[in-house]
Design a protein around this nucleic acid. Structure first.
Lengths: 147, 147
DNA sequence: GACTGCGTGGGGAAAGGTGGGGAATTTTCC
DNA sequence: GGAAAATTCCCCACCTTTCCCCACGCAGTC
């Protein structure tokens, strides 16, 4: 499985394209075929899953019973935002308008490696996010991984 | 199996035709033969099943116990609205009047990929639908897919 | 100091969405 | 039963968007 890490602030050009950092590109499995599935993240950002990783997610959703009202709604909410994009010859992807609108991304994007996915943030929004979550890492670690 | 995802707002022309997004067309299996079965959706929308996927649904409904009053009624309700349509040379389908009336679709249509089917919504109705389902994704995911 | 890798920008060709005309078929009405 | 009207289907044409390719400049490396 691909393990992404690190951060970078890149620009988004007039055509809505942004480069994926070379370090993250080299972390991709060959099975990903240079293709990602972008979707709406929890919090105001875009989740970027490599194709092979997304297949696993998709499988889960496909097994839900669509005769169940809540399941139907969940599938709608997740899939309507999902979009498949591929790297161009320069190692860039183009951001679907619906998603960059949602995340408030315009001409700058903060790219964060987060294990099995990459996250795209509006740099300013991310700064705000940090301000709202001032708990220090030590406390969090204890809360989450404690016992 | 075809896996549809993404969203798009397209127009419906004066002849009641609407294009199927190219991304969804490429997701079609060859067995679908560019043919869909449209039927009344749960919630106020139109369900669009590729031919091969519809066969599976048909099988499911065919296996229901027709001695059961509810099952009998459900099958009637679903099948009486079902209609088969094919893509034209431009990748469009024409919407049966009964269905577009039911969904309230006029000159604009919101097209949503939802796994094995495509959904057609009146954009405004969909906005209302979203307002009525404000549960956040995280809670819903937990409810539906367990811990 | 030249070379290579990487992020950025843009031009041109191809594809995709939209609209409409006209022939063939079906429906309706006299 | 036949003519008129409406509908359906197939094709062509336009225009915007997308995709693919080429080019530049900066940075780190040998």
């Amino acid at each position: 499985m691909a393990r992404f890490k690190g951060q970078a602030e890149y620009s988004v050009d007039s055509k809505g394209r942004t480069a994926i950092p070379a370090k993250m590109r080299t972390a991709l499995s060959p099975e990903a075929l240079g293709t990602f599935t972008l979707t709406k993240g929890f919090e105001q950002c875009i989740y970027v899953y490599p194709l092979d990783q997304w297949k696993i997610k998709e499988e889960e959703y496909g097994n839900l019973n669509t005769n169940n009202r809540d399941a139907r709604h969940l599938v709608r909410m997740i899939l309507m935002w999902a979009e498949e994009v591929s790297l161009d010859g320069q190692g860039r992807i183009s951001l679907p308008k619906a998603l960059s609108d949602f995340a408030g991304i315009r001409d700058k994007v903060l790219i964060i490696g987060a294990m099995d996915r990459i996250e795209l943030w509006n740099p300013e929004h991310f700064a705000h996010y940090l301000l709202e979550h001032t708990e220090d890492q030590e406390t969090l670690a204890e809360k989450v991984m404690g016992s």
